[in-house]
Write a protein that binds this DNA or RNA. Structure first.
Ligand SMILES: [Zn+2]
Ligand SMILES: [Zn+2]
Ligand SMILES: [Zn+2]
Ligand SMILES: [Zn+2]
Lengths: 162, 162
DNA sequence: TAGAAACCCTTGAGTAGCTACAGAGTCAAG
DNA sequence: CTTGACTCTGTAGCTACTCAAGGGTTTCTA
């Protein structure tokens, strides 16, 4: 099959497939006479695996590690479990951070009950106060926004919609 | 004061200050004879405001809107409240998504109690299954990882540590 | 007054994970 | 033979920064 069908089968953007190939996540496929990429069932499996991992918010690096284990089935899978535990930790930590954020934001929101002129808005006032040195622990989790640049991931992955 | 002191006072990286200037968030400062940027108290205030907003995970766009209101104090602040409500929504939505993720990940984790060879690992098996079409709503929130590229934000902002 | 350290400047590239476009080539149907 | 759908490569863009190269400036000390 050609790239378009692979894209349809897995619910992946065509450009994303080429990106994974460049990035070494997908093996380099055979080419047709006209230089088109030709894929088979193995590619569908592999790409589905990647997309499933991405839908669980794993990084491409994390996915690379998991792929390694799929390719060496005789190895002990302890590291797979470890990777998953770590990743669950990433998610949990980000949730904690967001919970704290939510509290701070709701506090701030309460400072302006009914609207008035911006000069006396309690929110703007609150934001102007000095930064409270919070003893946040180092983490590697990301922010709160998802921008137009990546609508596919934002919408969530809906595979298999043929 | 020069850029280094502004950086110290606000707990901001020097490069970040120059970046804000390029991006139009900080007004272009005066220059000394030797072409050094010269800042005053107003810049400290303005930068503190930005960093406080960033510590609440607002985007630079959101901050730009808030700055607009600080500069036009006669306007009604209803839009400030609206922006904050929207942003609280951003945080809440991401938390929901992460909660769902956590559940799925813990489900997956249970599939491999004791470690065995990768060929029979329940986790790898689970990840190989077809993607479940989940009816996720469109959102703009980001992922779960924070990488070395941005250690400052990751650590949280600790301003005023002179 | 020379020299060194500490600061500052601009420019350009890199980060994750894509997306989007330009400009070209390929292929099947009508 | 043309139209249109598809594909190709290469490049640039998105967020919010961070870092490094290769210079210039200031300040302090010997
Ligand atoms: Zn992770
Ligand atoms: Zn208000
Ligand atoms: Zn927001
Ligand atoms: Zn296992």
């Amino acid at each position: 099959m050609k790239i378009g069908e692979l894209a349809r089968l897995t619910g992946t953007n065509v450009e994303t497939i080429r990106y994974y190939e460049r990035d070494g996540l997908l093996p380099i496929p055979a080419r047709s006479d006209g230089n088109y990429r030709i894929y088979g069932d193995a590619h569908v499996q592999r790409l589905s695996f990647i997309r499933r991992c991405r839908s669980l918010d794993m990084t491409l690096e994390e996915i690379r590690v998991l792929q390694h284990f799929k390719e060496s089935p005789q190895e002990n899978c302890a590291d797979v479990n470890r990777l998953l535990d770590l990743h669950i930790g990433h998610v949990a930590q980000r949730m904690q951070e967001l919970q704290e954020l939510e509290m701070q934001l709701k506090d701030l929101r309460e400072r302006c009950g009914e609207t008035r002129d911006a000069a006396h808005c309690g929110i703007l006032e609150g934001l102007s106060q000095a930064i409270v040195p919070s003893g946040k622990t180092a983490s590697h989790v990301q922010g709160t926004h998802w921008h137009a640049a990546n609508p596919n991931s934002a919408k969530g992955i809906q595979g298999n919609q043929v």
